[in-house]
Nucleic acid binder design. Structure first.
Lengths: 222, 222
DNA sequence: CGGTCGCCTCACGGAATCGTCACGAGCGCT
DNA sequence: AGCGCTCGTGACGATTCCGTGAGGCGACCG
């Protein structure tokens, strides 16, 4: 989840709200930094303030839309109606007027994510006795909810979204940790172990979901 | 990541940008060198300048498309609109006009990679009762999955990608082991044997997929 | 018919990789 | 301030993979 805003109190509030809703917030304070962050690690969605130090949210929206179809929500203050319309024209999915209620924000965000999910891939995955709801950040094993840490969930998502396909160490590290950690495979091992301990029903030496491809990477069983 | 460009300042900039984004850049300064590099070690994607010392990017794009579906981005200067269109016709995925912002480049690159990954139509090879999915790193024999070690898979890929064509010992060793091992034929024999044991259905003396060309090398049956 | 050459196969040991555990630092929350 | 959770690190067996060498087989040639 990318947040592009330079007002500290709003950023802080958004961080809390998003965390509660199960999202990890990446914050950028300028338009340039926002585009950079989105390019380096494409987020699920973006929340962009219309007024930024080095440009406006309309421009950021337009630039993002050149290559991405992620949901984009625009934050507008009263009296910015004109820019708001421009932002929607530029491809924003929804707008929220400041001051806003946190509940409303989350609701609109989830709605936008759901719409985006309908369009392309399936939002949730099911296999054997394991259910993964990517949108809701919920994992069920035999109908029982399993708590996963952020990294564990991102790992599982990256694997499950490419079910059957091999995910190399580098690819997993890039998707979950970021491009600058593509060589730190030991943390990857550790978290794979912890993830297995939580979702694998059988003994750890006969994994049912996450199988190891020695020397190459991991894959989610098909 | 293959970069085909002969302008030093652009090459230098691309190297830095790509490294930050988590890619390893292989640079070729001519069309011929670019095609060569791509053949020896297929990159995840290619960035090709429209103007090259020994030809143009359109031709490189077309040649690459003869055997690969990797994402191809074309770099065009202002006033090259015509060639730009030709490049897209030849199979390029996107184009970037010089001068370009590094963020935009990375963004478009990631978008192209994502599109390529999502696409179901992967360049997989099928022969008789053998299926090879290069993208997923999956090999099926009569519908049953076969586990291959990294070297075995690379060997099979090198052979299958040049189906029918002879692959000399040196060529195979260079592609799988690297340029400094081109004379160590015995390991090659061993791994060919192991590979055959896993994928050849009949007796080992009548190979169906990997045939020996005595004294020269191996080839994947057509 | 015997020798030579190239190729295939197998078993073995070294090396790299993997899974696991315990520990400590960082952070948010009460 | 104290607690709990999460994460990264390092070290340890266990597993897997890879290269080597010896032996056997068939083809070719003298």
């Amino acid at each position: 989840m990318l947040v592009v805003d330079d007002e500290p109190q709003i950023v802080r509030a958004l961080k809390v709200v998003l965390r509660e809703a199960g999202f990890e917030a990446v914050v950028a304070e300028t338009a340039a930094a926002g585009l950079d962050a989105a390019a380096v690690r494409p987020p699920e969605a973006a929340i962009i303030d219309l007024v930024l130090p080095d440009g406006d949210g309309v421009e950021v929206t337009r630039k993002l839309r050149e290559w991405s179809e992620m949901p984009i929500l625009v934050l507008s203050a009263i009296g910015e109606e004109e820019q708001k319309v421009l932002a929607l024209d530029a491809g924003a999915d929804d707008y929220i007027t400041k001051p806003f209620g946190t509940r409303e924000l989350v609701a609109r965000l989830q709605a936008a994510l759901r719409r985006a999910g309908r369009g392309e891939g399936e939002p949730n995955i099911e296999a054997d006795g394991l259910e993964i709801d990517l949108a809701a950040h919920v994992v069920l094993r035999d109908g029982e909810q399993v708590h996963l840490t952020p990294i564990e969930f991102e790992l599982l998502r990256a694997l499950a979204r490419n079910r059957g396909r091999l995910m190399t160490h580098r690819k997993l590290l890039q998707e979950v940790w970021g491009p600058q950690y593509v060589d730190d495979i030991q943390p990857l091992r550790t978290h794979i172990a912890r993830l297995r301990a939580k979702i694998e029903p059988d003994a750890p030496d006969t994994p049912r979901y996450i199988v190891t491809d020695p020397g190459v990477g991991y894959r989610f069983a098909a």
